[in-house]
Design a protein around this nucleic acid. Structure first.
Lengths: 342, 342
DNA sequence: CCCAATGATTGGAACGTTCCAACGTTGATG
DNA sequence: CATCAACGTTGGAACGTTCCAATCATTGGG
């Protein structure tokens, strides 16, 4: 070991140091720094300058320990790369800040195992509540967690678990809107690029199937995923004969991938094929892509508010909020060019 | 206040409880749970089952307090909406995890004031180091922070501050590459859509000006920003006569906005006008946009590694790492259609 | 048979804060 | 002048852990 000239790194000043310098007790310093009204103006001034001069910083760990509160909520988010989640987070942050909660953000885009480990860490940090945004856990795992700490799941409802609330879009309705939109434009051969093997994907796929059935149309599904790459691959597969005239894609990112595939294949959008995405991420406006929208920031806000309510009132019955789902028609979808295939 | 039937919410089990149940002392429990080799197999087994049965969870706050270490680094990121930052974060997370550090992620996309407040929170949580990804602070603020805790700034170098390292791309080179690429394609009227009034934007603008000068070309700059909306607006302004044949845009997000503007105006890309972005975010591959790239994840990884090095060796001299910057030609840039205007 | 050495276990101090009951001062009240 | 309330202030306990020195039990060597 090389003996680095590490200067003794003098200990950070504590309440005690400030007290000594201001000539009062640590208790009074504590009160003063938390703006208690019972501190005389004189002492307060002395304390404040002493703290300033020493560069005092309160130690949150110590304070959390004795207060038995951390004023922190844990947020677990599946994947930061999808801008959708950033938009949800905006809402979470806003609401949390409003109620003077900090957030502890972790991401688990690897497997279920690391996801569990990350959440364990949050619990060890004694977060007062947990928001799970698009997780990969089993229902039992979620129930276990919810039994331990107030929890809100964002993106789909899980009914029947105590102490658990949820905020979700209406995937059945959303898919219905997407399909209706295309049918209204004259499309019949509408293929769904699925989101792969996970909960949201299944719900959306089921929604698609139901919507097609409602129109008496035959569903066709190509399995994909929630990334650009997956959408790209699925789209290339989907255009094989019989070529569909429209694609409803499981999410926006995959829709972007699908768009890329069409460009590469020289297939004109929306002339030859229409594309509809799902999620309503902001970027799609610039890209002029039709999509099913959800009030993302609002979902985050609701999640945080529900959580904080439950923290303050642990016994209250579960709330499962479904947010409004809509469709924004844009340039990626247009009238069907083919004569009706009937 | 309604008297909610809040069951007494029995206290979480502590080391003490586990010790009592296993019939040993709390010290031994502590050792056992940290896999100390000095615990007999018998006690270890007893302790582990007791902990399991009670659903014991170590309390990180308490442990941090006594250890005077949190094993946590704070990450402040400007804006989660820009996927670029998500990619940098990937690297940070990976490296942090490798060294058994947790990360505390905060975002400050509002003003400088909230940014400072958020960082204060991190310091109060006693993070052992800080990574600032594209901050808005003054140099003095950064120096103050670095004096208090090891700090790494990502996205541009700040020389001359003790205890501070940095990881940055080479904006001058990057812009040079962008301009060179366009000039090689025959462009001369190359307009820069700037990133607004901030550090990175200035560096990139300066790089653009230098590159143009090197080719003996007259610079033209339209001031914009780092968002889609800003890029959109700037691009609309930029196409006014004399119309440029190419745009070098301050970042990728703005380039997407510029693309949207061109589509809306019916200007063909790259037929009528070429567009080059900056940052190298993954999404641009799908959108087939030429851009200046940086090894984003690697930047994050380097930042975390530098930080951890410095935590372990506070006295070591500052390192300012510059990562490789390159250009990926894609479909948004092509040969200049105009005959040379000379 | 004792002593030293090894291994396993323990109690108490410490970390920096908040909370609480108690304290001294002051000024007004009877 | 005694009593009381209000106010400002204080010391000590507590939070749940880790660290350390000290203790206890066990073994082996002389």
């Amino acid at each position: 070991m090389p003996t680095t000239s590490t200067e003794p790194t003098r200990r950070r000043p504590t309440l005690h140091d400030v007290a000594a310098r201001a000539g009062v007790s640590k208790s009074l310093v504590s009160l003063a720094l938390r703006n208690s009204p019972k501190v005389s103006p004189a002492s307060r001034a002395a304390i404040l300058t002493a703290a300033e001069e020493l560069g005092y910083r309160p130690n949150r760990t110590a304070s959390s320990l004795v207060q038995q509160r951390t004023h922190t909520i844990g947020v677990h988010i599946l994947d930061l790369h999808n801008p959708v989640f950033a938009e949800i987070l905006d809402g979470v942050h806003e609401a949390a800040r409003q109620h003077e909660y900090s957030t502890l953000l972790v991401t688990g885009n690897a497997d279920r195992q690391t996801e569990k480990r990350e959440i364990t860490r949050l619990l060890e940090s004694r977060v007062e509540g947990l928001i799970l945004i698009a997780h990969r856990l089993s229902d039992e795992d979620v129930a276990d967690i919810a039994a331990e700490v107030p929890t809100v799941v964002v993106t789909w409802p899980i009914e029947g678990i105590a102490q658990l609330d949820s905020v979700s879009g209406d995937d059945a309705l959303g898919m219905r809107l997407g399909v209706d939109h295309l049918v209204a434009l004259g499309h019949q051969r509408i293929t769904h690029l699925s989101g792969g093997d996970n909960r949201i994907a299944h719900a959306r796929q089921a929604g698609y199937e139901a919507a097609m059935a409602a129109h008496g149309l035959a569903p066709r599904i190509v399995s994909g995923g929630f990334t650009e790459a997956a959408g790209y691959a699925a789209a290339r597969e989907a255009v094989g004969p019989p070529r569909p005239t429209a694609l409803v894609v499981a999410n926006d990112l995959a829709a972007i991938g699908a768009l890329a595939a069409m460009r590469e294949l020289g297939v004109n959008v929306p002339g030859d094929i229409s594309i509809v995405g799902y999620d309503g991420m902001r970027l799609l406006e610039s890209l002029d892509v039709t999509t099913v929208t959800q009030p993302l920031a609002d979902m985050g806000r609701q999640a945080a508010n529900l959580l904080i309510e439950r923290i303050n009132q642990p016994g209250r019955p579960s709330v499962h909020s479904r947010v409004a789902t809509g469709l924004v028609p844009r340039g990626s979808s247009g009238p069907c060019a083919l004569e009706s295939s009937l």
